[in-house]
Amino acid sequence: MSVVSEALAWLSDPVNWSGTAGIPNRVFEHVRISTVTVLAAAMIAVPVGLLIGHTGKGRFVVVTLSNVGRAIPSFAILGLALPVAIKLNLGLGFWPTFIALFALAIPPILTNTYVGVAGVDPDLVEAARGMGMADREILRRLEVRLAAPVIMVGLRTASVEVVATATLAALVAGGGLGRFIIDGFAVRDDARILGGAILVAALAICTELFMGGVEKLARPRTSTA
């Protein structure tokens, strides 16, 4: 029997579809940690990005973060999050994974939010100011809406990266779909490794497509593009 048919047999075996170590629960864990982290990162990175984009102050923070963020391997971020979590006595599993994924999600969201707001036509901002809008109103009614598609690209990049890296959470005793791959490696079970790999790839592609759909909704309706 080839490895692929073994993996398909593994995927369709009802035993693997129940319990805490079953596929549905692992998918749930994977989606839960990814969603929680991206939302938490967005809650910090979007307001900060908006503020920096609107005022133009602290631009170097964004530039540095996005450059450094690209050079640090996500595997290294997970590695570094482990001793941090242990030092803070947060234990294994959830917290090291959360810290790593959070650090990973911040740069793309922050950079895109900043770029989106900074890229709003200054004439429009002038016009809005001429119409008597206050800074807060300009930010909320003009800049946020025009920057929304670019911010969404940042959220999409962050989400796909987070879903991909959440696989590595299994290394720090976290749950999620990485369990099948890491445990499969440990016991040399090719069917489980391949089955897990197929599930992770499918989830990453679903995330990409889903966030692409959300991104379309975020485009301003008046846009001619």
């Binding site: 991909a164 890296t165 791959i181 391949l194 897990g196 790999a197 197929i198 992770v200 790839a201 990453a204």
Partner: peptide, 17 residues
């Protein structure tokens, strides 16, 4: 498509071959 597949999944997939 290749770029979207998480690295660990791709490496895991390839090791079986």
């Amino acid at each position: 498509f290749l770029y979207t597949i998480p690295s660990l999944a791709l490496f895991a997939f390839l090791t079986t071959y």
